[in-house]
Amino acid sequence: ELKKVVALYDYMPMNANDLQLRKGDEYFILEESNLPWWRARDKNGQEGYIPSNYVTEAE
């Protein structure tokens, strides 16, 4: 089971490997080892790295 998180803030990608975050949207965490960058997937199936301090665990 993948960990689900909710974006606390918008995040615009800095490079091609990053994933855009939209405040309030849910994302699945694929990999937590790259702290403070986590690999995530959005609801459309896009994958990339996000800043872990921009998300919180979903209820």
Rank of each mutant, 00 (worst) to 15 (best):
K4R: 08
E59A: 11
A58P: 13
G45C: 05
Y27E: 02
L30I: 11
L19G: 00
E26K: 12
K4E: 05
S33K: 13
I29D: 01
A16F: 04
G45R: 05
R41C: 11
Q20V: 07
L21W: 00
K43D: 07
L21H: 01
E32S: 11
L35F: 14
E32Y: 07
L2S: 08
V6Q: 11
S52Y: 04
R41F: 05
F28M: 14
L19C: 02
E32V: 14
D25S: 08
L30K: 08
A58Y: 12
G48Q: 01
E57W: 09
P51F: 09
G45F: 04
L30S: 04
P36D: 12
E59G: 15
S52P: 13
E32I: 04
G45I: 01
G24F: 05
R22Y: 13
P13I: 04
N53H: 06
K4L: 07
E1A: 04
K4N: 03
A40R: 01
Y27N: 02
S52V: 11
Y49W: 11
N34G: 15
N44H: 09
P13L: 01
N17G: 09
Y11M: 07
N34E: 15
I50D: 00
P36F: 02
V5G: 02
W38R: 07
G24W: 03
W37M: 13
A40D: 00
P51T: 02
Q20C: 09
W37S: 12
Q20K: 08
L8R: 12
I50V: 12
E59R: 09
D42L: 01
N15L: 13
R22G: 03
A40L: 04
P36C: 08
P51E: 02
E31N: 09
N44C: 11
E47A: 07
Y54E: 02
Y54G: 15
Q46M: 09
M14S: 13
V6G: 02
R41G: 03
V5M: 05
N53T: 09
N53A: 13
K3I: 03
S33W: 08
A16Q: 14
S52K: 15
G45Y: 09
I50W: 00
D18E: 15
M14Q: 15
E32T: 12
E1C: 03
L21D: 00
K4I: 10
S52G: 11
F28H: 08
P13D: 02
Y11L: 07
T56A: 15
Y9V: 14
L8K: 13
N34V: 15
R22C: 13
K43V: 13
A40N: 00
R22M: 09
V6N: 04
N15R: 14
K4Y: 03
K23H: 11
N17K: 09
M12F: 09
A40W: 00
N44K: 15
N17W: 06
M14D: 12
R41V: 05
E59K: 13
E32K: 05
L19I: 06
E26N: 07
G48P: 02
G45V: 02
E47N: 06
A7I: 00
K43Y: 09
K23E: 09
E57M: 11
E31R: 11
Q20D: 05
